[in-house]
Amino acid sequence: MSLQPVRDFFAANAPEITVIVTAESSATVALAAAAYDVEPGQIAKTICIRAGEVTALVVMAGTSRLDNRKFRDRFGIKPRMLAGDEVVAVTGHPIGGVCPFGLATPLPIYCDESLRLYDEVVPAAGATNAAVRIAPDHMAKLTGATWVDVGQIQADENPTAKA
């Protein structure tokens, strides 16, 4: 379980943030939205990609998908999603618990602009039933993430935008 490295990360970098552990799984966007009583878009999903020789994390709104054209325009290469065992090996987190905190390996982290539709997002926290509540800009600052526009919000989603 990779919950402890995430707790250690927050203890060292943002002790005001509490890791929330639920009895039910929050391993998918739908399960997480129900478990934490938020809109699906507020679930900050973390995907692990490889672009050439670089492995990186992209954190985006739960209702967004990685847009390969935007990614290629931004980085000059097409991304490839890592297989589950590769994700666990580089992040130290299980599928459904992958997050940009307490990583087993230092990785470049990118936050997609789709997260900025919300004042608060809920990324996983190293386990399939753990998460944190955090402002997107605070998450980016804590993780040293770079903001990018590589996501595509799904047409059926109508997020609540900031006022």
Rank of each mutant, 00 (worst) to 15 (best):
P136E: 03
A14K: 11
P15I: 13
M1D: 07
V87L: 02
C99R: 09
R50Y: 07
Q154M: 14
E39W: 06
G84S: 05
V150P: 11
A83V: 09
A127G: 07
A161W: 14
V21Y: 08
L115Y: 02
R69G: 08
V38A: 09
F71D: 00
I77G: 03
A130R: 05
Q42D: 05
V38Q: 09
L3V: 05
V6E: 02
L115S: 03
G96H: 10
E157D: 14
G144I: 12
P108S: 06
M81I: 07
A51K: 09
I20H: 02
V87I: 15
G126L: 08
L142M: 10
E113A: 15
Y118E: 06
M81Y: 08
V148F: 11
A125V: 04
M81R: 15
V29Y: 07
G41I: 04
V132A: 06
A30M: 00
S2V: 06
A12D: 08
V58S: 00
V122Y: 01
L107T: 03
P100D: 05
Q154H: 14
A27I: 06
D8N: 14
N158H: 15
A12G: 07
G76P: 13
R80C: 01
K78S: 13
G126S: 06
E39T: 03
D149W: 00
S25D: 09
E157L: 12
A140M: 10
I43N: 00
P108T: 10
A14N: 08
M139N: 01
Q42S: 11
R72G: 06
A44E: 06
R69S: 11
A44T: 03
P106Q: 12
S114Q: 02
L117Q: 13
E157P: 09
A33H: 05
I77N: 04
D73Q: 15
I47L: 15
A14R: 11
T146W: 03
R69A: 11
G84R: 03
P5V: 06
T63L: 15
V98C: 10
K70L: 13
V54K: 15
P100F: 01
A155M: 13
A140C: 08
T91W: 09
A104K: 14
A155E: 14
T128W: 08
V121G: 00
P79L: 00
D137E: 15
E86D: 05
P5D: 07
I43M: 02
V148G: 10
M1F: 08
P108C: 10
E16H: 13
I47A: 03
S64W: 03
V121C: 00
V121A: 00
T28R: 12
G84P: 02
A161S: 12
V122D: 04
R116M: 04
I17M: 10
V38S: 07
P159Y: 13
E157I: 13
